[in-house]
């Protein structure tokens, strides 16, 4: 079982500035699943009923000179503490940047100074048992640095298969997706809603409405966003719908089969919005068929264009607490 690669500058900034801060909010530990073509960060796919998040990078998005081999079809998976990974990466970068900074313009710097990442087994101090680590290695102008991030034992063959199966399962797309108008604003709102109740009803219509509502015995608090961009199945807004209340409109849409409602935890919903730390270019919410889960899909553009960068993908699946009336 071997893994060795060099992180590219783009890969460093993607992870350090964007994805690790976002993924850390999903949960401190996650699985890192490495295949011949992809590196995937997975939260809660095998265990638990928490929010699932899947951040997938094609190897070229993060690495060059990517080498992986294992007896399990060249797949390796282990769990890792994201805050340790983030700290290690930041520490390595300070040395790495120092070197690159002083040598820019000399031309040879980018090839001679590289940031290597590899899997190793080491004997930690005061221990008889060698332990697995994900190791970062680089050299600076006057110093070199090695950062060892402890990881779990690599997952067994059956666990890797299970992880792969769960990953395949998590790819089903909702029939209708609506685009979130302004993630910051929505996050602000949901953060304030959190004080009022624990469960939130999320309704999505084929007309492009996103309706959020918290309802307890003492209070009902809701927000409706309309005329959003729809991807997938759409429908015309019924005539005479305009002057109705948000609740009535949603009810009617559900009766006509033009909408679905699910109930999720407000905490999960707020967490899913934290993904905007990864600086996606847009975000879409949708409800999986049969109301199996609430899915949020983030889209990343190739810098300077409005074309989707297919080498990066991030989506979350929020467990549904009540199958709803859909």
């Amino acid at each position: 079982m071997k893994f060795k690669a060099f992180l590219t500058d783009n890969g460093v900034s993607l992870l350090e500035k964007r994805f690790l801060p976002a993924l850390d909010k999903m949960g401190r530990t996650c699985h890192l699943f490495l295949t011949r073509e992809h590196a995937i960060f997975l939260h809660n796919l095998l265990n638990g009923d928490g929010i699932q998040s899947i951040a997938q990078f094609r190897k070229e998005a993060l690495f060059d000179d990517y080498r992986i081999s294992s007896q399990n079809d060249d797949r390796i998976a282990f769990s890792i503490d994201l805050s340790l990974l983030h700290r290690a990466l930041r520490s390595v970068i300070t040395i790495y940047a120092e070197f690159s900074g002083t040598h820019t313009g000399t031309g040879g710097a980018s090839t001679s100074n590289r940031l290597q990442i590899k899997l190793v087994k080491k004997l930690p101090p005061h221990s008889q048992q060698p332990m697995p680590f994900l190791t970062f290695e680089t050299k600076g102008y006057k110093s070199a640095v090695i950062q060892d991030v402890p990881i779990s034992k690599p997952l067994s063959r059956s666990d890797v298969l299970e992880l792969q199966a769960a990953l395949d399962m998590a790819q089903d797309l909702p029939r209708t997706l609506v685009q979130v108008p302004d993630m910051n604003q929505l996050q602000n709102f949901v953060d304030r809603m959190k004080n009022v109740g624990d469960l939130i009803d999320v309704s999505i219509t084929k007309y492009g409405d996103l309706h959020l509502q918290i309802s307890t015995t003492l209070i009902t608090l809701g927000a409706e966003f309309r005329k959003l961009t729809v991807i997938g199945e759409q429908a015309q807004v019924p005539v005479g719908d305009r002057d109705l209340s948000a609740q009535t409109r949603t009810q009617r849409a559900i009766q006509k089969g033009d909408a679905m409602t699910v109930q999720v935890s407000v905490k999960h919903f707020a967490k899913s919005l934290q993904c905007h730390l990864a600086k996606p270019d847009c975000a879409f919410y949708g409800i999986a068929p049969q109301g199996a889960c609430l899915t949020v899909i983030f889209q990343f553009f190739i810098p300077g264009t409005r074309q989707t960068d297919k080498s990066i993908s991030l989506h979350c699946r929020l467990p549904v607490l009540d199958p709803g009336s859909s």
Binding site: I219, T220, A223, E224
Partner: peptide, 10 residues
């Protein structure tokens, strides 16, 4: 425009 917040307090 396009967004509405509402509440009912008992």
């Amino acid at each position: 425009l396009g967004a509405c917040i509402y509440a009912e307090i008992r």
